[in-house]
Simulated scan of single mutants.
Amino acid sequence: MDRDGVINKDYVDYAYTLDRFQILPGVKEAVTQLKKAGYLCVVITNQSGIAKGIYTRAQMEECHQYMQQELNHQIDRIYYAPWHPDHSESLSRKPGTLMFERAIARFDIDVNKSWMIGDKKRDLIPALKVGLHTAQVGGLDDGLAEIVEADLHAAVQLILRS
């Protein structure tokens, strides 16, 4: 799943301090339900504010530690791409597929039984390229997702019924 806009409140100018890193309602319950159903929970997130010099890796890590604590350490792995095309190039950055490919290889993920939950088109494009099912949350419908719901909790309810 994506991070900003799916797990925590998304800000145009980034969520990189604990006072702004707010876990969205229903996220903890949704992640717990996924884990109980046997799913891995992997976060795949662009963190371009690092390349832009807006925040540091240490600040991002502090937010990730807080997220893990709030979600009872149920996130199996966090992949992040700290680059931005205006400052640095990388194949890892979404909509590239490299972070997805790393997770699939590391955990021997069956893409036919796995989902990417994102809030933006750039989350869904690489997921579709590697064969994952897709869900879009947060109020947008870019026409790429099998499931479109208001939030992670609602999307997870449909995923678990499918």
Rank of each mutant, 00 (worst) to 15 (best):
V31I: 15
R93D: 05
I54M: 10
D108M: 13
S88G: 04
G38E: 09
A105C: 05
S92I: 00
S114C: 09
S88Y: 04
G96T: 10
G118F: 09
F107I: 04
T56A: 03
Q59I: 15
R57K: 14
L34H: 06
S92Q: 07
A105L: 10
K120D: 00
K94G: 08
N46Q: 05
P82T: 00
G118A: 12
K94N: 10
I117M: 07
P85Q: 02
Y80K: 02
Y79F: 14
K94F: 09
L40F: 13
R102C: 05
Y55N: 01
K120T: 08
G118S: 07
A105M: 08
A105T: 05
T45C: 03
S88Q: 14
I50M: 03
L40N: 06
A103W: 09
Y39C: 11
F100P: 05
A105N: 11
E62Y: 04
K121G: 05
L34P: 00
I78E: 13
T97R: 11
I117L: 08
C63I: 13
C41H: 12
H87P: 14
I78M: 13
Q33C: 14
R77G: 00
E89N: 10
R106W: 02
A103F: 11
Q69L: 12
S92T: 02
H73I: 02
D86P: 06
I104N: 06
V111D: 07
T56N: 01
I117V: 15
I50G: 07
G96I: 10
L98D: 12
P126I: 09
G26M: 10
I50P: 04
V42I: 15
R77C: 09
G96F: 07
E61N: 12
T32Q: 13
I78G: 03
P95N: 06
E29C: 01
A127Y: 11
T97K: 14
I75W: 07
Q59S: 12
K94P: 05
Y79C: 06
T97Y: 13
G26Y: 08
R77T: 06
E70S: 12
M99H: 07
A37C: 08
K113P: 00
K113M: 11
M67A: 09
Y79M: 08
A127W: 08
R57C: 04
V43C: 10
L98I: 05
Y79Q: 08
K35V: 13
H84C: 04
V43S: 01
R102H: 11
E61M: 14
C63N: 12
Q65H: 10
G26T: 09
L124N: 01
D119R: 13
I125P: 13
T45E: 04
I117Q: 00
V42N: 01
G131Y: 13
N112P: 01
A127E: 04
D110M: 09
S90D: 07
D119A: 14
G96H: 05
L34S: 03
C41E: 06
E29V: 03
G53D: 06
G96W: 05
K52L: 14
E29R: 07
K113L: 15
Q33E: 15
Q69R: 12
V31W: 06
H64V: 05
M67F: 11
M67G: 10
L91V: 15
L132M: 15
I75L: 14
W83D: 15
I54S: 01
M99D: 03
G49C: 11
